[in-house]
């Protein structure tokens, strides 16, 4: 392919991304050094937004919680997603129904799904799952005000919402694995486990890496689900980084745009660190191809 053709083909898309993603991003970086509200020209305040964010214990808690959520949810999704995909792959006539009903969780708009999810645990709205768990364990859980039960609920919701995507992806990956390998691995027992662990999973490294990547990205920006699921997120240490930004820069007419932007920049750095292994792999791959 000639350089000119390449430029013409990729140009429009690049233009849109530069115009609508890079320019706003530049504005965010600008704002992060300013004291500013919407529609106004800000005043330069140096690094004070950054120092304010970094010394705010609330921000520290938000980072901790977001990382915790990311690690737990990603591990659960990879393990359960793989198991379900293997199971679904072995199904016959049932398959479309199982897959179709799982996709419902994925297509519900995030915040709407979170509200529905919260109703299952909120006794003011019937709380049918809360009731079932209370009957089974004989214990009462404060799903919305106790840190750990609330975390469990948020984790359950995030897994619920993101699992279908990874099942779909892993299932697609499984179909790319040669048939003999797959059939061999459907037999129960130790040999099957070994088969999955040493043969099938390694051949699917690419897709599993991708699922991992997308899940990490999506969990790191958890935000709208917390509005119904954790009404006092900050007070119990279950606030995510994006929720912190929302609270400072938009909600209830709050206009600390400078602080919000500084946190945005910090979280971009954090995301890049989390994604570093993937970026390195991609570059390595490009080098070998070049």
């Amino acid at each position: 392919m000639r350089r000119r053709e390449f430029a013409v083909l990729i140009g429009p898309s690049l233009l849109v991304m530069v115009g609508l993603l890079v320019l706003p991003l530049v504005r965010t970086i600008q704002w992060s050094f300013q004291e500013v509200t919407y529609g106004q020209v800000g005043t330069f305040v140096g690094l004070s937004n950054y120092s304010q964010a970094l010394t705010d214990p609330r921000f520290g808690r938000a980072v901790f919680f977001t990382l915790l959520l990311t690690i737990v949810v990603t591990s659960i999704i990879l393990v359960i997603g793989y198991l379900i995909a293997v199971g679904v792959n072995g199904l016959g006539a049932l398959r479309p129904y199982i897959l179709g009903s799982m996709l419902v969780a994925y297509v519900l708009p995030g915040v709407v799904g979170a509200v529905s999810f919260s109703w299952l645990f909120d006794s003011n709205f019937g709380g049918v799952l809360n009731l079932a768990i209370e009957r089974l364990t004989g214990r009462e859980f404060l799903w919305f005000t106790d840190t750990w039960p609330n975390r469990a609920m948020i984790i359950a919701h995030t897994v619920w919402h993101l699992l279908p995507f990874s099942v779909l992806m892993i299932l697609a990956g499984l179909q790319g694995v040669p048939k003999e390998l797959r059939e061999a691995a459907t037999i129960d027992g130790a040999s099957a486990w070994k088969m999955h662990l040493y043969v099938i999973i390694p051949t699917m490294r690419g897709i599993i890496g991708f699922v991992c990547l997308i899940t990490i990205m999506d969990v790191l920006r958890t935000f709208d689900s917390l509005i119904p699921l954790s009404p006092q997120a900050d007070a119990i240490g279950n606030e995510s980084i994006m929720y912190y930004v929302f609270d400072n820069a938009f909600r209830d007419g709050s206009q600390q745009l400078g602080l919000g932007s500084a946190v945005n920049v910090l979280s971009i750095l954090l995301i890049l660190i989390c994604l570093f292994p993937f970026i390195r792999d991609l570059l390595k791959e490009a080098k070998t191809k070049a």
Partner: peptide, 17 residues
């Protein structure tokens, strides 16, 4: 890849403005 991972707020708030 990096664009895909951007926090939504970092582009949406400037877009609003």
């Amino acid at each position: 890849l990096v664009f895909r991972s951007l926090p939504r707020f970092s582009v949406v708030l400037p877009m609003y403005d």
